[in-house]
Design a protein around this nucleic acid. Structure first.
Lengths: 185, 185
DNA sequence: ATTTATAGGAAACGATCATTTCCGAATCAA
DNA sequence: TTGATTCGGAAATGATCGTTTCCTATAAAT
C-alpha cells in the first residue's frame, strides 16, 4: 500500500490535485479503479493519505540526512543541502506536495490547510531547534534571533522548491546554501 | 478590460487554474458568459492575459516601492519589504499567481512554464542589479557573489509567498527581512 | 469439490465544466 | 420611425470526471 501511495505522491506532486484524475491515479498506482474506491473513500482521501505518506517519507530522509552528530551549524547546513538536492533537475521539476497543496488547496480545504500549516510548523521547529543547538554548542552566535532566523530558513527552503520547478542546476542551488549560511553570523 | 483582468487575477490566485470555473470568472469580472468568449478564445487565454496583467501591475508597484534614490542596499531592502508586505494577512492568503502557476501548470503547459521562468528570471535580474549597484556605491561588499546572492533572495521571496499562504503576521515577515539582510555581509 | 470471500475491471450514472449557439434588448444610423 | 448591429445572458451541447454498481475470475476456506 505504501508503494502505491508513493506513486500517488509523485502524480499529485507533478499534476496537482485538481488535474489528477482517478485514471491517472490507478495507472500510476497500478490498481484497478474499483480497488481505489475499496481502499479509499474518495479521491480526497487518497490525497490526504498520500500527503501523510509523503510527510513521513520526507521526514525520515531528512532525519537521515541531518544525522546524529556534528554541531548545530553543520546540521543546519545539511538541512539546506537536503532541500537544494531536491530542488534541481527532475526531482525539482516534479515539485513539492506541500508547496502545491498550499497554493492549490489551502484556501478551500481546511483539513489540507491544517496539514500544510502543520508541515511548515514542524519544519520551522526543526530549524529553530538546530539553531538553538548551534547556539548552545557555540557554532552559532548566541545573540542571534533564532525564531526569525528559523523562519527565514523555512521561507528559503520552500522558495527553493518553487524556483526548482523552473529547472535549475545542482550547482546553482548549492551556491544558495553557501550564501544562506551567512545569515547565521 | 484591465479592471476585469485584475478581478480575474484575484480569482486565479485564490483558486488556482483548474479549480476556477468560467462561472467564477464571469462572476468576478462582472461579465456575461458570452462576453468572456467574445473577448477571449478560451479559459486558457483569459489565464494568460491575467498572468500578463498581474505581471505588469506587480512590476509597476514594485518599481514604485523601490524608488529612484538610495543605495543598492537600501533599495534591496525595499524589495524584500515589498514581498513581506504581500505575504501576510489576507493578501498573503490569496497567494501569488507565479507561485501557483509554477506548482500547477509548469509541467503541462510550456507557454505558462516559459512565462513563469521569465518572471523569475526578471526578478532575479532585478535583484542582481540592485546588489551590483550596492557594490558600486559601497553599501554592499565588493567580494560578495552577486549571482548566488540574488538567487538566494529570489528563493526567499517566493518562499515568503508560500509561507504567507498559511497566515503569518506582518511582524513575522518583517523580521525575516532583517535577518535576510545579513546575507549581504 | 463446493462455497465463500476478495479483487479486478468494465459499464453506467449523475454532476460539472468548457464551449457554442441562440435569442432578446439596447444602441446607433438613416 | 425603422432597420441593422452589437452585446448581455440564458439555454443547449459535448466531453470529462468522480463515484457507484455489477459482473467475473481467482483464491481461500471448509
Amino acid at each position: 500500500m505504501n508503494d502505491a501511495l508513493d506513486k500517488a505522491v509523485r502524480v499529485f506532486c507533478a499534476r496537482g490535485y485538481h488535474a489528477t484524475s482517478i485514471g491517472d491515479l490507478t495507472e500510476a498506482m497500478q490498481l484497478a479503479q474499483g480497488s481505489v474506491y475499496k481502499a479509499f473513500k474518495d479521491k480526497r482521501a487518497v490525497f490526504l493519505a498520500a500527503f501523510d505518506r509523503n510527510k513521513a517519507v520526507r521526514a525520515e530522509k531528512l532525519q537521515d540526512a541531518i544525522g546524529a552528530g556534528g554541531t548545530g551549524r553543520e546540521r543546519l547546513r545539511k538541512v539546506l543541502a537536503f532541500y537544494a538536492e531536491a530542488s534541481h533537475g527532475a526531482e525539482g521539476r516534479q515539485g513539492c506536495l506541500v508547496v502545491g497543496s498550499a497554493a492549490e488547496l489551502a484556501i478551500f480545504d481546511d483539513e489540507v490547510a491544517q496539514r500544510v500549516a502543520a508541515s511548515l510548523d514542524r519544519n520551522e521547529a526543526l530549524l529553530s531547534g538546530l539553531i538553538q543547538q548551534g547556539q548552545a554548542d557555540g557554532s552559532i552566535p548566541a545573540d542571534l534571533d533564532s525564531a526569525a532566523t528559523a523562519r527565514l530558513m523555512l521561507c528559503l527552503l520552500q522558495g527553493m522548491r518553487v524556483v526548482g520547478k523552473t529547472g535549475r542546476s545542482r550547482d546553482e542551488m548549492a551556491a544558495v546554501v553557501e550564501v544562506a549560511m551567512k545569515a547565521l553570523a
